[in-house]
Design a protein around this nucleic acid. Structure first.
Lengths: 341, 341
DNA sequence: CTGTTAGCGCTTTCAG
DNA sequence: CTGAAAGCGCTAACAG
């Protein structure tokens, strides 16, 4: 063996590797980046030199010249909005498999912060951008278009995507829940919802399908159990004889269930409750929570695929994907006769 | 005004900005990076040129030369482990205020993955590294030390940190819960725990303080409500007359509560339950969940401060911080007399 | 306060 | 299959 890792000198560069392997700089580069076009013997020597020197490639330098950072930016309202975690998870994994890393940024539901975050991301030269939700401001829209990298908006659908979009109609989700309650004979219904754009769109869909306005408790995002309890209190004060509540998240629904229990209301006999998001806990609680399932992991997987394809110069056949949703009926609404008996 | 943003040509470089402002490249650079040492008039002209050209700095290029990426790597087991989110949140905010961005990596509780993630991060030249938990493998340890950037391990405490450490003793947490149950007269206790290192350390502390071995249901990470239900089933099968369960997370405790209700056990009269982490939902449920609180946000804030100080060449007075913890008694254990009455 | 020069570490040309 | 030269966009170092 030649020189091993020096105790604590400067980190090895590709130059050091090349010298240790007795090849030129560029050959070392190719042995690592495009092993197919290098002879096997050379490749092995370079590999050995990498081990010996403890070489770690510098992606800043590589990216500067190649204009490919092998990094994708992921923008979400906040990490604490657990709805997005499965999407972020599968996105991370799918990108990793393709040799990309995900860098997350949070907007906190604020259009100005969104633009700042996008600017910060842009300065790191991402190869693609995945948004959880649609782009908020016109300013951000233009910024994204000017960047010239593939953009995927997720968790919503629109006629006017910045580039590509994968999601479902929040309006349709709201309508489906309204239709479900009506089919069960519910007459006096309330809505407990977060204040974010998508949740309010679901509310709009609910009201449209319901046919008339619906008492609504709007709570600040991110939603929590405490806010769910509070929301039910408000709704009961405004709508005596309330029979059902549609919630904008399963955690909010959980809070509604707790508050209902605290007030001696039986669920679903006295009060039916539906959530959104199909969180893990909702399936196993007593009562289990009726909810709307959307395929979060698939959105992440597909977003990664589209970004990677575009980075490789391919043009995906479609630019918009409506993945739909599924209402899952559980105990919180599924008791025998509806309320008011 | 001079030339505005060309429709869709190449993105503007600092060179373009300098020319538009009629100054040299380096002056433009300084006007943006060290505005204090540039005359106000020049600064204003450069600023105007930035607007006119739509310039976005290229941090890859800047970082390559200055050897400061203005990026910090954050390593956690998985985003779905919600215990860490408050820490990640405050870390993100505190770093942002200091002009740094956080890049997250997940290890999935796997030492090999940990090392891969660290290698991937290292190739992006982070200015610092924050670990949620202690470094797992000796290999990763060495890698981190060789990197030569400040490292903060959090959410645990050790005599032998890689560099700096901010956390608390999991052993002591377990012991405190055991002492608490004993003081309440509990005799037959069980443990429901995730399989991760820290949770098992809390178990060790519990057993040590309890004085003899304790029936334990170990469930795979990440913990969930369903696993909590399952764990109580196992414990009841193995320990007839079980009076109390210590859980390694509030979500597991939630599951234990649900299973207890399903079996007609009253909490806390028939079964006392304690969790860990002080999750939001635990405070507002019925019964509310007794838990152990640790200051997640403070760990993030302090970690950011230490990293930033070290990046500025300062040497913090201390390299280890034990932030302690607090047992919060709530309804799930606080009923009148303990079980067995 | 401003400018010139050099070069970070790597990959893209273009030649063998 | 391998190599030499050039330069990505920016900032440190040293002048003025």
């Amino acid at each position: 063996m030649t020189a091993a890792t020096p105790p604590s000198s400067k980190p090895a560069t590709l130059h050091d590797v090349a010298r240790a392997a007795g090849v030129s700089l560029i050959t070392a580069s190719r042995a690592l980046g495009q092993p197919a076009i290098v002879s096997e013997a050379t490749r092995a020597r370079v590999q050995a030199a990498v081990e010996a020197t403890g070489y770690i490639p510098n992606l800043l330098a590589g990216g500067l010249k190649s204009r490919r950072s092998r990094m994708v930016a992921g923008i979400l309202p906040a990490l604490s909005v657990s709805q997005f975690l499965p999407t972020v998870q599968s996105l991370t994994v799918a990108l990793h498999e393709a040799g990309y890393q995900l860098m997350l940024g949070q907007t906190f539901y604020d259009a100005v912060r969104e633009d700042e975050v996008l600017a910060a991301m842009a300065s790191r030269q991402p190869d693609g951008i995945v948004m959880m939700g649609l782009v908020q401001s016109e300013r951000s829209r233009e910024r994204l278009q000017r960047l010239g990298v593939p953009v995927v908006e997720t968790w919503d659908i629109t006629d006017r995507p910045v580039d590509m979009v994968i999601g479902f109609s929040h309006h349709a989700v709201g309508a489906a829940v309204a239709d479900y309650f009506r089919a069960r004979g519910v007459e006096r219904v309330g809505i407990a919802t977060g204040s974010d754009h998508r949740a309010l769109q679901r509310r709009d869909g609910f009201v449209a399908a319901w046919g008339r306005d619906v008492p609504t408790a709007i709570v600040p995002a991110p939603s929590s159990l405490a806010l769910g309890r509070q929301a039910l209190g408000e709704l009961l004060a405004r709508q005596p004889g309330l029979q059902a509540v549609a919630c904008s998240s399963d955690m909010l629904a959980h809070g509604v269930l707790v508050e209902a229990a605290a007030r001696g209301l039986r669920v679903p006999q006295d009060l039916a409750v539906a959530g959104f998001g199909n969180a893990e806990f909702g399936e196993h609680m007593l009562p289990s929570i009726t909810t709307v399932h959307v395929d979060g992991p698939e959105m992440g997987r597909l977003a990664a695929q589209l970004i990677v394809q575009r980075c490789q110069g391919q043009v995906p056949e479609r630019a918009a994907f409506d993945l739909g949703f599924r209402l899952i009926e559980r105990q919180s609404t599924a008791g025998g006769a509806p309320a008011g008996s």
